[in-house]
């Protein structure tokens, strides 16, 4: 029942690692949208006052590790996760797992992953990869955002696993030793739990900077940026949002499409058409995020830097806020209804 290793490409790294690890256990039904939905991957936060790379600290993702952990938890899959103080011990532990043919998820910093293009290698510590073997001094890597598997020297992998700074991985690794495939009922309940948790994250997080209200908060900020920061700096700030939003493995627009795909897939477990309206809403939200990114590009390319244009961008974000708020409210009602009917 256990499958040999197979490389799977995904839009988001942690989804990909989750799917790879579960498929290796024989979970044929597992897909990226399903992992993303059960793991409640959709999120937004704009942390005020803090600057990140000299720009606004916005994030479109939940805490690293959350998608994997929550997917396993909701599907009743026993998983193990470990962090280390000592890099040598961390390497020994990983080698031990690989010698038992257990493929392992590792949290790494992209700065040290030499197989990625230089332009992408910032000090970003929440990149997840699959390590599936070791040959001499090379680790065999399945980086799920890449088309093909690759490899990396043990020295580089150790550096990447012990990078410092925000979200420092401290050798973080996770794996599943042995698991039975859950029945359909468990999958159904996991889907509902994932949806309800995501509703909570996006609608009911306290304060005005996280969840859908965070999008509105950013919109309000954008209206003021031109005057407060000047055109050049404001353009850089917008550039930072676009990079956070659309770059590999993160994703604003991209994430909405994955979520829409998840709702489509979820229908096959319940009744047809039950999520079609909300799925359509998230497709629209994804389109709007991409429109917003295109507009923001207009500013940092110097094509249009008028205040009216900044207001248009802010208006778009407010439209997204309204759309996603109503979509999650609908979703909440549907999930409640399904739960009451006991699936």
């Amino acid at each position: 029942m256990k499958e040999p290793y197979k490389h799977i490409q995904s839009a988001h790294c942690e989804n990909g690692v989750t799917v790879t690890l579960l498929k290796a256990q024989g979970f044929e039904f597992m897909s990226e949208p399903l992992a993303f939905g059960i793991g409640s991957g959709l999120f937004y936060i704009h942390i005020p006052l803090i600057k990140f790379n000299n720009g606004p600290a916005v994030s479109f993702r939940t805490m690293p590790g959350r998608i994997f952990k929550q997917t396993c938890k909701f599907l009743n899959i026993p998983y193990k996760t470990k962090r280390f103080r000592n890099p040598a011990k961390a390497q020994d532990f990983l080698d031990g797992l690989l010698s038992k043919n257990i493929i392992t998820g590792c949290q790494t910093s992209v700065f040290y992953l030499s197989y990625l293009p230089v332009e992408y290698r910032f000090h970003f510590n929440a990149h997840n990869i699959v390590v599936y073997g070791k040959e001499n001094d090379k680790y065999l890597i399945s980086d799920t955002v890449m088309e093909n598997p690759t490899e990396i020297s043990s020295e580089e992998l150790n550096k990447a696993r012990f990078a410092k700074g925000m979200y420092a991985p401290r050798g973080h690794l996770y794996y599943i030793e042995e698991s039975v495939v859950p029945d359909v009922q468990t999958v159904k309940s996991a889907i509902i739990k994932g949806i309800r948790r995501n509703v909570r994250d996006m609608l009911y997080i306290p304060g005005s900077v996280g969840g859908v209200t965070g999008i509105k908060y950013t919109a309000q900020k954008i209206r003021k940026w031109r005057q407060r920061l000047g055109e050049r700096k404001a353009g850089q700030y917008l550039g930072q949002i676009v990079r956070m939003q659309e770059e590999i493995g993160t994703g604003g627009g991209g994430f909405r499409y994955i979520y829409a795909a998840f709702l489509q897939e979820a229908e096959s477990y319940f009744e047809k058409g039950i999520f079609s309206e909300t799925s359509e809403d998230f497709t629209k939200a994804g389109n709007l995020w991409r429109d917003a990114a295109s507009k923001m590009a207009g500013v940092y390319r110097g094509k249009n830097t008028s205040q009216a244009y900044f207001n248009e961008i802010a208006d778009l974000l407010e439209e997204i806020f309204n759309l996603e708020k109503s979509a999650f409210k609908k979703l909440s009602a549907t999930a409640k209804q399904i739960k009451q009917n006991r699936f």
Binding site: E119, Q240, V242, E246, E247, R290, S294
Partner: peptide
Amino acid sequence: WEVKSSALNNAW
């Protein structure tokens, strides 16, 4: 996508 590669280029 041109939009994001220009954001990345600007940052660099």
